[in-house]
């Protein structure tokens, strides 16, 4: 399972980076989304996958029965997803504004702030 997840995460990272290397800002935004999602999966996998053992403490016990799934990475991933949601919302607004102002979605046309002159 971990191997499969590792391959999946690798593919997601690769496709995210591939999309970011394209010239369109929309693809850039999609690439960023894939990148943040693969990072979420990475947290989830790196912390260890336990199936079918929710960390629920039954009445009268002080600890869930071993082995149980670690709840912390899930909380971390949830937080990261929420943050990613906020960032994504902003990125979409930004992409739209850039498209409206610059009149193109080509990143190569957005180099007026890079050069050494002016």
């Amino acid at each position: 399972m971990e191997t499969l997840m590792a391959i999946l995460i690798g593919c997601l990272f690769a496709s995210g980076i591939y999309l970011m290397l394209r010239r369109s800002i929309v693809k850039l935004a999609i690439g960023l989304v894939l990148l943040s999602q693969s990072a979420n999966l990475l947290i989830f996998t790196a912390a260890g996958l336990t199936r079918g053992n929710p960390p629920l403490v039954s009445a009268g016990e002080s600890m869930p029965p071993l082995p149980y799934a670690d709840p912390l990475p899930q909380a971390l991933v949830l937080t990261a997803i929420v943050i990613g949601f906020g960032v994504l919302a902003f990125t979409l607004v930004l992409v739209k504004r850039v498209y409206q102002t610059v009149g193109t979605d080509d990143l190569d046309e957005m180099r007026s702030t890079d050069g050494f002159k002016d």
Binding site: M20, I25, L28, L32, L35, S36, S38, A39, N40, L42, I43, F44, T45, A46, A47, P73, L76, A80, V87, F90, T91, L94, V95, R97, V98, T101, V102, L107, M110, R111, S112, T113
Partner: peptide, 23 residues
């Protein structure tokens, strides 16, 4: 806006790497 696109893209990459590293 042109500056913001670059700033946002590179900082989000950095955040993704940070998140992975934390995991």
């Amino acid at each position: 806006l042109e500056g913001a696109i670059k700033y946002v893209a590179l900082n989000l990459i950095s955040s993704a790497i940070l998140l992975g590293a934390i995991g």
